[in-house]
Design a protein around this nucleic acid. Structure first.
Lengths: 236, 236
DNA sequence: AGAAAATAGTGCGCTTTCGTACAGAATCAT
DNA sequence: ATGATTCTGTACGAAAGCGCACTATTTTCT
């Protein structure tokens, strides 16, 4: 493999689509950081100053509602980037609360430093566009899912999304956190997780979920996961 | 007003942001058509060959599910365009069923004819980008809404979206159609519509809804409508 | 004019999910 | 160690919304 040293090509799909020289430039202008679960990246309304290209971390965009409830809008991992719209448009602000769902690494780059690249690089533009199309597809499907499918199906759909992005079978997540992302009760999640554990699809223990039977999870999920995957595949 | 003849500037926000000359070019390359309610623009998977810039019509992107149920993903009117992603990327296909929700006029342009404009015109690019950001915001909020809010709130939110795009107080819509868009039962819609009619917020009669008290509708809606409106306003 | 279709009103039992609450177990802090 | 906190299990009544079915109008078709 060419140029596969450990400062490049660690797994973000957008960066991986770039020519070696551009990818190197982004890595040198930014830096690889570790992000910790629950860490806030942007509060609602914050100006977007940095982009984050997740490697094995997953970022959550969550709506915090007036009554204190919350619901996740989207999940971004190695297939996407945080801050897409700000890349092309000055002075964008965050529309939702952006936080880290599962810890890991990401490439953090100050927008001002790489804005010239967005204007110049066709490859980067089209990679960003593809990823935003993809994100829109995820959000669309979640809109459908939230409106039409059972909590158990939604749970499985969501867990599959997380699993893909965390790149590990051991995912650090409490029922409480999951509930807040799915806009459901903690007790409701406990019930469903319990059933899935009995079915030997997952196992969990005080804040850690282990995916035992990925195929089973896909079977218990609604068609939404497949729809999102199809869109991802079609993109390439 | 300059150039305000009746072949241009009839109300699509994207077109209206363009320099006169470019807007004229789009109008001359395409044509203003009338679209009728229920008309299919694209089936799932169809290649996107034309763009539609709605004027006073509204287009619906709807997910048709395996079990025969359906749910609307997004609503596009004068503030947006149908076919955004295909503008920048060859050979895109429709991810959802695109149909006309409320009849009216739209500017229809063959993609191949105007692709050069997308590459050249910075104004057009940024207008399209802004509208896609806006659309993503609508879809995001609908994801939240579908997951967290009551059918009555969702109904009001949705009707406000339709009202803005149809640009008239008399909207041709049966309970059945609304139910399919909201992913609910027809009878459920009848109940809610009945209550809103008693409250003199709307009136309806065999397939036509009249908005009587717009303010009342906003009050009965959840915070989702305001969130979408804020995003629209922030865009400018 | 008469039949057929479309639209809306209503009722009932059922399922899912919620809100809330309490308790046991594991982990953490000091 | 031990007290506090976090995480999970469980229960129960209430509410929203569903599936289904039947009816009454109004409109359309022939």
């Amino acid at each position: 493999m060419v140029g596969n040293n450990n400062s490049v090509s660690r797994g973000n799909s957008i960066l991986d689509l770039l020519p070696e020289i551009e990818r190197r430039e982004i890595f040198s202008l930014g830096k690889v950081i570790c992000v910790a679960a629950e860490e806030t990246i942007y509060h609602f309304g914050d100006p977007i100053t940095h982009l984050y290209f997740p490697l094995n971390s997953a970022f959550s965009a969550t709506s915090l509602m007036e009554d204190g409830s919350s619901a996740e809008v989207s999940l971004t991992g190695h297939e996407g980037v945080i801050g897409f719209f700000a890349a092309f448009n000055e002075q964008q602000s965050a529309r939702y609360w952006i936080s880290v769902l599962t810890s890991g690494e990401a490439v953090k780059v100050e927008l001002a430093n790489i804005r010239h690249l967005f204007a110049e690089s066709k490859k980067l533009q089209s990679a960003l566009l593809a990823s935003s199309r993809n994100l829109m597809c995820q959000i669309s499907q979640r809109a459908v899912c939230n409106g039409s499918h059972s909590l158990a199906e939604r749970f499985c759909f969501w867990l599959l999304l997380v699993h893909d992005r965390a790149k590990t079978d051991e995912i650090v997540l409490t029922h409480e956190v999951i509930a807040r992302k799915l806009g459901a009760r903690r007790a409701g999640i406990t019930n469903i997780a319990g059933m899935l554990q009995i079915a030997k699809v997952i196992a969990y223990n005080r804040g850690t979920i282990r995916i035992i039977n990925r195929w089973g999870l896909e079977k218990e999920s609604c068609e939404c996961y497949a729809a999102v995957q199809n869109a991802l595949a079609a993109k390439e």
